[in-house]
Design a binder for these strands. Sequence first.
DNA 1: ACCGGGATTGAAACCGATTCCAATTGGACG
DNA 2: CGTCCAATTGGAATCGGTTTCAATCCCGGT
Lengths: 369, 369
Amino acid sequence: MSNRRTIADRTPAGFMLHCRPKVLRYTEGVKKARPFPALIDVARRAGVGAGTVSRVINGGQYVSKRTMARVQEAIEELGYQPNVAARSLKGRRTKTIGLVVPSVADPFFSVAAGAIEAVARDHGSPVLLAQSENLPSREREQITSLIQRRIDGLILVPCDGGNLSLLQQAAFPLVCFDRPFPGQPFATVLGDNYGGARAATEHLIHRGYKRILCMAGDGKLFTSQQRVRGHRDAIRDAGMPYFAELEVQDYASASDALRRHLLGKDRIDAVFCIKNLITMNAYKILRELGIEVPSSVGLLGYDDFELADTLEPPITVVRQPVVGIATRAAQLLFDALEKGKHPKGTTTLKVDLVYRGSCGEMLPSRRSI
Amino acid sequence: MSNRRTIADRTPAGFMLHCRPKVLRYTEGVKKARPFPALIDVARRAGVGAGTVSRVINGGQYVSKRTMARVQEAIEELGYQPNVAARSLKGRRTKTIGLVVPSVADPFFSVAAGAIEAVARDHGSPVLLAQSENLPSREREQITSLIQRRIDGLILVPCDGGNLSLLQQAAFPLVCFDRPFPGQPFATVLGDNYGGARAATEHLIHRGYKRILCMAGDGKLFTSQQRVRGHRDAIRDAGMPYFAELEVQDYASASDALRRHLLGKDRIDAVFCIKNLITMNAYKILRELGIEVPSSVGLLGYDDFELADTLEPPITVVRQPVVGIATRAAQLLFDALEKGKHPKGTTTLKVDLVYRGSCGEMLPSRRSI
DNA sequence: ACCGGGATTGAAACCGATTCCAATTGGACG
DNA sequence: CGTCCAATTGGAATCGGTTTCAATCCCGGT
């Protein structure tokens, strides 16, 4: 049985053809099996118009106390929850932001995601989470999906410049995080990769290490490139010879390369690891080979990690202010959204060199870069 | 020149009063500054009706090849992106799921979140991420926020039973993850906490340890309780005496308690840590005090962690199949969404006891529980 | 030229909010 | 008690899609 009602029920037949007026949207008494009560249901229950309920929900300007109370009561009774999708259709704001990271399982990005969610929540916007896996095509899919959901703004760890047109068309505020957008002046927040790596290598040199192996991970990534650059410049400025073979630019061969350089002739006497997991891996290998750290070989890692201070010896690292970077990025985004000040330029946050002992330092301490 | 057409053009004036027809929604020539082109823009560009464009987008049933091509072209030219909010308003599906975890910075949950996002993406649904911090009030806020966004389904790590009514009213599929919903038969996926802990303690006992300190973390959490229960039962079934003072139920006093029990009289000879971070902390303290592991004191942790196999000695742990649990939860949810089979009951996944050496085992190996 | 019927198509209702506008109400005041 | 102005209020258009319905098109068959 259909509860659909057309004008035919109320209009003389002759009118039908030329003048088909709007049908009443909700027919009283007919209970639609809607999962959630809608605003109109609240309105009817309180015996007021839709506009009035809307006004009550949005701060209650121009609504009498009595009406307000009645509406509030109806809202309570029905357990009314406004539909953000409908609201944003008219209002142009979804109160939702997007976050695209390579992988949330990565401790760096998971901590960042946590901090970003916290800021977003304080502003009443949940976070739509997407992972790009550092794949341009995946990134594109994810951004498209977020655009179709009309996010108010996006925090992105760009892995590719190819999606520029997508982003330009979208025209919502964008903040890049950890990496800049290739060749574009989008707002960006990141740690001082160059400075951190440079200070790290200078430290190694200063401690007397001469042949430093640089384990760079994925050489195509911006962070990796910057850190390698800092490393190279430190070597050059110290007047030391530069050896191309002492840079390992990919994950796959990293372990083998390290082993080779630790055992063959022309042995290295220090390892500079450009990322978390690489450092841990290098530590494992050094242990496995029974090489003394720091006396035979020095070890220095980029990114701090749980237990870095507990290993034997404790590992000296460059520590990025992850939460600070993430929070800053989120704040920039909400400044743009709420105060309209569109963020531009790059914010580079200082990093710390945390002395712990894997390069032969005495006491735990640190220096700000 | 307007080709705006109201019914007035075709209707005798007298009809107007009683029968006020709808005005055409878009007047050509007036370019609205809309951030994104809408379906109607595509329709006009292609010279077809809105319905036709909609049909093209949704699979192209009942559309001629020629029209189809024309519409596709218009979509390309305008860079049209459908508005999911508008779509879901009518269609009742937001193609978005919610995920509420205590904290994404926690490695356990970040890995889980990554796995869940991966499954969700495969189904074309991004994930709305929310953190509860294990606070009931926060959990409530977050769930409310997700409901207002009309998520299709929710994966929840419940920290409180107080939000039941909210969830019941919402009536979307819900899958609990890592913990059950207190007193409710919602679908749940978790590891075998009881069995894992029991096997762990049995192992310690079997290795000859007699006085085992159980560091339980937050004793109010389900996982903690289950594991403590497994631990107790193992002790009881071994016919060993049970000492209440050997259970530490909160984080704050954990370190002090451990130190006390390691140094005072009636010393313990093993530590069973119920969570990741607690294990790492215990390891630090054991090291700091110069206590030999496993000869003086045995150490066993719940949850595997990076470097557990590299510490000296490598740490024996109970390993949960995190990705498996998370993936299963996500799959249950999408089964519900796509195949309509509403999930019920609890799925308990097996855990592994990974023998590494911190309890005096010989070789690395493992046993499935 | 006429007819039946399936393939296409456009128009308009509808989803659930916001917002503008016009109408009504209420209170102060003369 | 009538006026006037401001505070309230209801109604309708609108956002951007989906979906139903009826109209039209196109065909072969007669």
